[in-house]
Design a binder for these strands. Structure first.
Lengths: 372, 372
DNA sequence: GTTGCTGCCGCAAACGTGTGCATAGCGGGT
DNA sequence: ACCCGCTATGCACACGTTTGCGGCAGCAAC
């Protein structure tokens, strides 16, 4: 090929058709400027360019500066995929969530992304749609992408990962919904503590007939929160009434349905402890649909402290989950795992009860109110 | 190397230290099983394996079946990075959003991911943090990853992309905040129509003193919504009062501050048209802090119809933006762009006014109420 | 028996980078 | 003159795929 043709950029996809006088037909795909191109321009070998660009002390300062200048002018961007092939590390992680449209997942994803980015990692996003089969597919796909590690939130697969991981040989950390006593690394919140705190709060307000609205999908997280609720009742000497523990689907609509069944009881509860904020949303709607008021007639607690919780009317009493931080922690955990060091298996973050105005004394007088 | 060693999987990272009797020191990074490994197992050449795995008619059906079986048993997963290097297509796109923690961005991201996934593409997620400089960095980073295309939402860079794109040579589609009359492809909502509909709705309820709470950050989207607000007023013969158009920061806190300045006016508005739902959240809080009621004292409209809008008290009257669908559209648009075909430059989706209960007649009697 | 065709398969090159090793130049000490 | 050591550079691979092309059987047609 002619020497002087590479004057400027590779240009837009050639519209005029080539004459085919060259032996090889020209590639359809426009070629990016490569390390060899700028090696030719700088009249050095391409390894020298490679070294210059990563500030290796092996290359003369003057030549390095010249090379960098030329590369800059040519708009050269090293190919991460070629680098990944030879170094066997893609500087990439996979993040699988149920769906990023979910506020919880979104906040966690944000923390993961930020931390990953700070450490030079890019993140592949994948939705599992809370479907075990699909989740497995996504993990496989990420493995094909040769991610250096993976983070999966609210896994539907759980323990089945052990054989899979042995085969894939990719570091992985789970956030929430980790089955206890397994080898996989995870970061989770103290579900029992949080749920117990919320229920205890209701008990202290004088409630005795306290219901629980859960999620029937069988998340480990849910099991633990239900357990915390029971512990609180037991601790206060309140008998656990099975008809007061109902299950929705973790979303407002399903929760509303479950709440309605509670309201139809001969003696409805005076307070409900919800599996999460979404569930609380549905519960509150169902309560209002019956013409009842929150918290005057029924107190409600949530779990998560999604950002909108404080803007509800009344603002929602809930258990705060440091979602962003949990994402960061998962990433930090994964980083040490990827560096080969063995990391702490389970990191547990504290749950903090945030008392707002959706809970009040059982007689209906407000609790924790300052003015008005 | 011995012939019979590759019986099972590559095994866990060897803990016992190698004797170093082999010439080369063993690699730190555990080698994944490659196409050559299974070629050896199947006693064929590796190109044959490659062809067998992609169902090429060039290979005998029987051998193909045998190869696939062996590959399956060995847990072989082709390396997408090696394939990407040779085919020059990574089957990967980049998605940059302000932050996935934002409900709007999350919903769009969900649509993008789903559609991308359906077409065999993986998506790199990047947060711009609504910072132009950072956004540019992210785009560059994605280019280094050799993504086949990019989608960026709520861009802070806008028109500056033209020279950048010419250099990067990567198909790109913007969602929302595309400056009009430029060549870049985009999908956006009919901002003016939506805002005009909301304002007209307020006018029909008898309001004359209608305020606007915007976002001072200078998004094109905001400019257009303000314009729609003005058009509606002008169309009804209402004089546009500059002191009624204030600007927050698109988030509840900033919006509350802006709203307070409106409430301090000698003659406060009887209705406010908000730039988006987040802004409405802040506006409502400020209104209540003054002891006023929504909608009896002041009507409020939002924009976006984020999922929580229907759960507010009162449920928020707002302009629905089909966020998930917009993500899908962006991806579909990008797909045709990546296939080489030239695509329609701007796709515009309709805005739909959703009337709920945060708006009422100027005298305070409810509007659109059915019961109660 | 030569030619040609079809069906399978392997060779070799390529993609764009990183890196161990050899080597060239050069200055200094004996 | 020789050797040594240091600095800067190039050579030759390797990473794991895809793909154009040539080859080699087997078989039919002439």
């Amino acid at each position: 090929m002619p020497e002087k043709d590479a004057t400027k950029r590779t240009g837009a996809p050639a519209h005029g058709e080539g004459r085919r006088e060259l032996r090889k037909p020209e590639r359809q795909l426009s070629r990016q400027v490569s390390i060899k191109d700028i090696a030719r321009l700088a009249r050095v070998s391409h390894p020298t360019v490679s070294r210059a660009l990563q500030n290796s002390p092996l290359v003369n300062r003057a030549t390095a500066a010249k090379i960098r200048k030329i590369a800059e002018a040519a708009g050269y961007r090293p190919s991460a995929v070629a680098r990944g092939l030879v170094t066997r590390r893609t500087k990439t992680i996979g993040l699988v969530v149920t769906t990023v449209a979910d506020p919880f997942a979104g906040a966690v994803a944000c923390g993961v992304e930020q931390s990953a980015n700070d450490h030079g990692y890019a993140v592949f996003l994948a939705n599992s749609n809370a479907n075990a089969e699909h989740e497995r597919k996504m993990v496989q796909a990420l493995a094909e992408r040769r991610v250096d590690g993976m983070i999966v939130t609210s896994s539907r697969v759980g323990s089945d990962y052990l054989p899979m991981l042995a085969q894939l040989n990719v570091p992985m950390v789970l956030v929430n919904d980790q089955y206890p006593g397994e080898f996989v690394h995870s970061v989770m919140i103290a579900n029992e503590d949080g749920s117990r705190a919320a229920t205890t709060h209701l008990i202290q307000l004088g409630h005795r007939r306290i219901a629980y609205v859960g999620d029937r999908s069988g998340y480990q997280t849910e099991t633990e929160r239900l357990e915390g609720y029971k512990q609180a009742l037991a601790g206060a000497g309140i008998e656990i009434n099975p008809e007061l523990a109902v299950h929705g689907d973790g979303r407002p609509d399903g929760a509303a349905e479950a709440m309605e069944s509670l309201l139809k009881l001969a003696e409805p509860p005076t307070a409900v402890c919800c599996y999460n904020d979404m569930t609380a949303l549905g519960a509150i709607r169902a309560i209002r649909a019956r013409g009842l008021r929150v918290p005057e007639d029924i107190s409600v607690t949530g779990f998560d402290d999604l950002f909108f919780a404080q803007y509800l009317e009344p603002p929602l009493t809930t258990v705060r989950q440091p979602m962003y931080r949990m994402g960061e922690l998962a990433m930090e955990n994964l980083l040490t795992l990827m560096s080969g060091k063995d990391s702490v298996a389970q990191v547990k973050v504290e749950a903090e009860l945030i008392v707002r105005k959706s809970t009040s004394n059982v007689n209906g007088r407000g609790a924790g109110r300052r003015n008005g």
